[in-house]
């Protein structure tokens, strides 16, 4: 559906995108996940035609769209600040992209009603924009970008300015609306929970490059690099020359390994460690231990009957399935 090959973008000497290649299938939702300044938004703007790539090719539905102006690309883009037109009503906002095409007034009205129904804002046609709540504005913006039936929908941190509880319910809703419309979508966020909920595949971005692209499960259980590990908050990176676990390590040229928290459990015998921190958080307890000469690791205990104290000696069992080699830098 969308094929990016070696896309570069620079502002003067400042290189914002450094060779992005990406394939997105029909009906797939890709999430660009990364910190601010990692190039997520710039990539969306290049695809939309709002920025001119310095190099690379962009092919949308078999058509090379590099030189086209934004208004000729027929893609949808939902802005972080929604960019709703403040002087127009809800219906006028949604209809804006329809008027450029060839639809009569009746058809336009019908399409607007249809979209308002889809985003569950029936009857909001004549509301002025400044009387909408943040969540309502978000849905109007979504409806507006869906209205002209774009070939590709892009959403730039669409829930970024909403509070956490609202975000949780809306992200599922946005997911369902996109899937219901059968759209191909790129969703930009810096929130991994959001990304896990909405994405078919997640692309982790850093310094204008894609660090890893994978399904949420694969990304979580098979992170490629130390950056991804840290970004996902998985912590337990050990060096290949760590004495205590050398025999457990797979035969690999990697110099660093992730001991995935999922693969660490308490045992009656095994690896010796000292508890340094215990944080109880309801359904699980996060335990940090110090493994002599291998640094400190964190894992989770789900059995509420197990009591641990700081300073206590424990034995760990390591499931070698969860020892993951990390890319050498």
């Amino acid at each position: 559906m969308l094929e990016l090959k070696n896309v570069h973008l620079s502002y003067g000497p400042n290189e914002v995108l450094k060779g992005i290649s990406l394939n997105i299938g029909q009906g797939e939702i890709i999430c660009l996940l990364g910190q601010s300044g990692s190039g997520k938004t710039s990539l969306l703007r290049v695809i939309a035609g709002l920025e001119q790539e310095t190099q690379g090719s962009i092919v949308l539905a078999g058509e090379r769209i590099n030189g086209l102006k934004p208004q000729q690309r027929h893609v949808g883009l939902m802005f972080q600040d929604y960019a709703l037109f403040p002087h127009m009503s809800v219906a006028e906002n949604i209809a804006f992209g329809l008027r450029s095409g060839k639809m009569d007034a009746q058809q336009v009205r019908q399409r607007v009603d249809e979209l308002l129904h889809l985003v569950r804002l029936d009857g909001y046609q004549d509301r002025p924009i400044d009387q909408l709540s943040g969540g309502e504005q978000q849905r109007v913006a979504l409806a507006r970008s869906l209205a002209p039936r774009p070939r590709l929908l892009m959403l730039d941190e669409p829930l970024g300015s909403l509070d956490a509880s609202l975000r949780e319910t809306l992200v599922k809703e946005v997911h369902d609306i996109i899937k219901l419309a059968g759209l191909t979508a790129i969703y930009v966020t810096h929130d991994q929970q959001e990304a896990f909920v909405i994405a078919d595949r997640i692309a982790i971005m850093q310094h204008g490059q894609i660090e890893q692209i994978a399904t949420p499960q694969e990304l979580y259980y098979r992170p490629h690099s130390r950056f991804v590990v840290e970004f996902l908050g998985l912590h337990n990176v050990v060096s290949a020359d760590c004495e205590a676990i050398r025999e457990l390590l797979p035969d690999d040229t990697a110099r660093e390994f992730l001991i995935h928290p999922k693969g660490i459990s308490l045992a009656d015998e095994g690896l010796n460690a000292v508890v340094t921190e215990v944080i109880f958080s309801g359904d699980r307890t996060a335990v940090t231990v110090e493994v002599p000469l291998c640094g400190s690791w964190r894992f989770f205990v789900y059995d509420p009957l197990i009591r641990l104290d700081v300073g206590q000696q424990v034995y760990l069992h390591i499931d070698h399935e969860f020892i993951i080699p990390l890319a050498n830098k």
């Binding site: 102006k69 208004q71 690309r73 802005f79 992209g97 450029s100 970008s145 002209p148």
Partner: peptide, 10 residues
């Protein structure tokens, strides 16, 4: 973002 949104909308 307002003119940009309009532009993307065609």
């Amino acid at each position: 973002s307002l003119p940009e949104a309009a532009q993307v909308l065609g």
